[in-house]
Design a protein around this nucleic acid. Structure first.
Length: 630
RNA sequence: GCCCACGUAGCUCAGUAGGUAGAGCACCUCCUUGGUAAGGAGGAGGUCACCGGUUCAAAUCCGGUCGUGGGCUCCA
């Protein structure tokens, strides 16, 4: 389950010491200085070209920097060469960067005079919130900016050929859609031309792995205008991948003591009032289906049904449907449930952000004493999935509430003791699971702390792909009022762990496509084996093998096209099919096959029975023969 | 939703200054029966996203709609 956009605030507020490789220390980094200084140079160039424009933020980022402006006249990609030309001229101009510290009042006066309302706003905030009594300014040539620094000492130290204006985009002032829309210019920036070229090359390379390209190309999914935005159609190849993932999940959950349930796609409105979701989630839900009845002259609303945006309330009703004893706990209810969310039109993107998605969902109802073991088991399940799929490029985020958040009362259930207790329990489980994580305040769910697993897509965007939440609030009397009878004969409210290690099929498959570059391990590949007869004469033999493999539940295709062998090999390789079997006269006579594996140079001939035995074992044990890659 | 760009055959793209459309791949047919990354010939396929406007004439110019892509805190 993703955080509500409104609540997705205050990134990186506080990092814990559990961080291994996420250290910042960026202010001392020469590259940081370079990018930061170059940002000033670009701002100078842009303000020259568009007099009367005002500035927002202009920070260094992983690939260079960006700068936000409210422009007097729009800038498009056609203006990039001009910007670059002017930047180079400024660099050549040997402008010195000079720092100056002004008392707050003087700083504000200067910013007012510069007609920089956004800088004024931020300066006020720095003074008030952070209690600064001076603010620093940097001047280079005719350009002045309020800035913490540090910078290079003179513009001529900046490399002229190692940056490139990349793109222009819209961005709200401080990321809030209620604020002014600014124009953001992204720029690549490195220390040398070679590094820049290498970065651009890597970027282009990554784009080739983009699931939005590979997904349709490999017939995994299709998005059709007539069906609707964000509502992908899963083609046979994509469905095979989903089915395999579900198979793994069902096995793991079965062994982990989960029980499977199935719940409907639509539900009466009141359930979401009970759960507390409707008031809070309504703008992400599809509009309701309204049942009306004619009463006299008037139409009266009898019922409202919503497409379900999450599975939890349904599972809670299953829990509540019977009297529960402490002896029954923990109860673990699992479902690959399909949910629908009316995400912002502009936020939709391939399989990554959709409006209908199937979650690897489950809810664990347990006592406080059981939380530790249950949470630990969930995290260990994550570990197993990551090992199975060779996933290493992720980090875990322990998302906590923020007691200092001014809007805390609306954002979080008001129960400080419960927050402190549950956060401690989750932290302990994480430490015991021995998984590195960072702690971030202000990212919790409204009902409790959670652990989010963050991944970075090939295009460099960070996404949450799975989350595990501890919920102490929803079972309480004022919400779903879930209870069990304790050993003492009295009723108690259980705790709930919401967990979805594989996230949603949509996002997970998008990630896997990019992770594997479309070349899936055999067990997961939509087509596992393609049989290629050397010529038409051996079609019958190929067909015989295909039938035998299909009988063993192998996803196999027979290439019966009237093409030359080389062409058929190429076709199979382009489709990234893990195993191509070449069969001709020799193979037919020996009842053998020649095995050609994707990405492997060596090919081997062996008796067909040996091949099918080894293949069966490879699929059953879900081994990964190659490192993820293209 | 908002900012910018884009929308020509299933896919990738060309179409110069408004004069009713073209390539490669894929698809179909025929020839070829070929041992490891594209054999040859022919054919079919488009209301140039949709709606409206300007014009003798619109893929091309203008407006709107729909869709796609890049963005929308990595915080002086």
């Amino acid at each position: 389950m993703r955080a509500h956009p409104r609540l997705r605030a205050q990134r990186g507020a506080e990092m814990s010491e559990h961080v291994s490789d996420l250290g910042d220390g960026k202010n001392d980094d020469p590259l940081y200085r370079l990018r930061h200084s170059l940002a000033h140079v670009m701002a100078q160039a842009v303000l020259d070209m568009r007099p009367g424009s005002t500035r927002g933020f202009g920070p260094p980022i992983d690939t260079g920097f960006y700068y936000d402006f409210v422009l007097s006249e729009p800038i498009t990609a056609e203006d990039f060469p001009e910007i670059e030309k002017r930047m180079k001229r400024i660099i050549k101009g040997r402008q010195k960067f000079e720092r100056e510290d002004l008392p707050i009042a003087d700083a504000l006066a200067r910013l007012e005079e510069m007609r920089e309302p956004y800088k004024v706003e931020y300066a006020r905030e720095l003074a008030e919130k952070n209690g600064l009594d001076t603010l620093s300014f940097y001047t280079n040539g005719p350009f002045v900016d309020m800035c913490e620094g540090p910078h290079v000492d003179v513009t001529s130290r900046l490399p002229k050929g190692a940056f490139k204006v990349r793109s222009v985009a819209g961005a709200y002032w401080r990321g809030d859609e209620r604020n002014q829309m600014m124009t953001r210019l992204y720029t690549w920036a490195y220390t040398s031309k070679e590094e820049l070229e290498e970065a651009v090359r890597r970027h282009d390379e990554a784009l080739r792995r983009d699931h939005k390209k590979l997904g349709p190309a490999l017939d995994i999914y299709h998005i059709d205008d007539e069906v609707g935005k964000g509502l992908p159609l899963w083609l046979p190849n994509g469905t095979a991948i989903r089915d395999e993932l579900e198979k793994v999940a069902k096995e793991k959950e079965f062994r982990g003591g989960y029980q499977r349930v199935v719940t409907p796609h639509v539900t009466k409105a009141n359930l979401y009032h009970l759960s507390g979701h409707l008031p809070y989630y309504e703008d992400v839900m599809y509009p309701p289906m309204v049942v009306e009845e004619q009463e006299g002259d008037e139409k009266v609303v009898k019922e409202k049904y919503y497409l379900k945006p999450m599975n939890c309330p349904h599972h809670h009703r299953i829990f509540a449907a019977r009297k529960r004893s402490y002896r029954d706990l923990p109860i673990r209810l699992a479902e690959y449930g399909t949910v629908y969310r009316f995400e912002h039109h502009g936020a939709l993107s391939g399989l990554l952000r959709v409006r209908g998605m199937s979650m690897n969902d489950a809810h664990i109802y347990c006592t406080e004493e059981q939380i530790h073991d249950e949470f630990l088991a969930v995290m260990q399940m994550h570990k197993e999935y990551f090992e199975l799929l060779g996933i290493t490029d992720y980090y875990m985020r322990l998302s906590l509430w923020d007691p200092e958040d001014p809007k805390g009362k609306q954002k979080y259930v008001d129960n400080p003791q419960a927050w402190e207790r549950t956060e401690k329990l989750v932290r302990e489980a994480m430490l015991e699971a021995d998984l590195p994580f960072v702690e971030v305040k202000g990212e919790a769910a409204f009902y409790g702390p959670k652990v989010d697993i963050q991944i970075t897509t090939v295009t460099g965007r960070e996404e949450t792909f799975s989350t595990n939440q501890l919920d102490f609030a929803v079972p309480q009397a004022d919400r779903m009022n879930l209870t069990y009878v304790g050993a003492d004969g009295a009723e108690h409210h259980p705790y709930i762990i919401h967990r979805a290690p594989l996230g949603t099929h949509e996002r997970f498959v998008a990630y896997l496509i990019e992770h594997f570059g479309g070349a899936f391990p055999t067990w997961l590949a939509p087509v596992q084996v393609r049989i290629i007869p050397v010529s038409e004469k051996y079609l019958a033999y190929g067909d015989k093998l295909a039938t035998a493999l299909r009988n063993d539940l192998v996803r196999v295709e027979l290439d019966s096209s009237d093409e030359k062998l080389g062409k058929k090999i190429r076709e199979g390789t382009v489709r990234k099919i893990p195993i191509l079997l070449v069969v001709g006269e020799q193979e037919q006579e020996a009842e053998s096959v020649t095995v050609r594996r994707y990405g492997e140079k060596e090919q081997a001939s062996m008796p067909f029975t040996q091949f099918s035995g080894e293949l069966g074992e490879e699929i059953r044990s879900r081994v990964m023969r190659r490192k993820p890659g293209i």
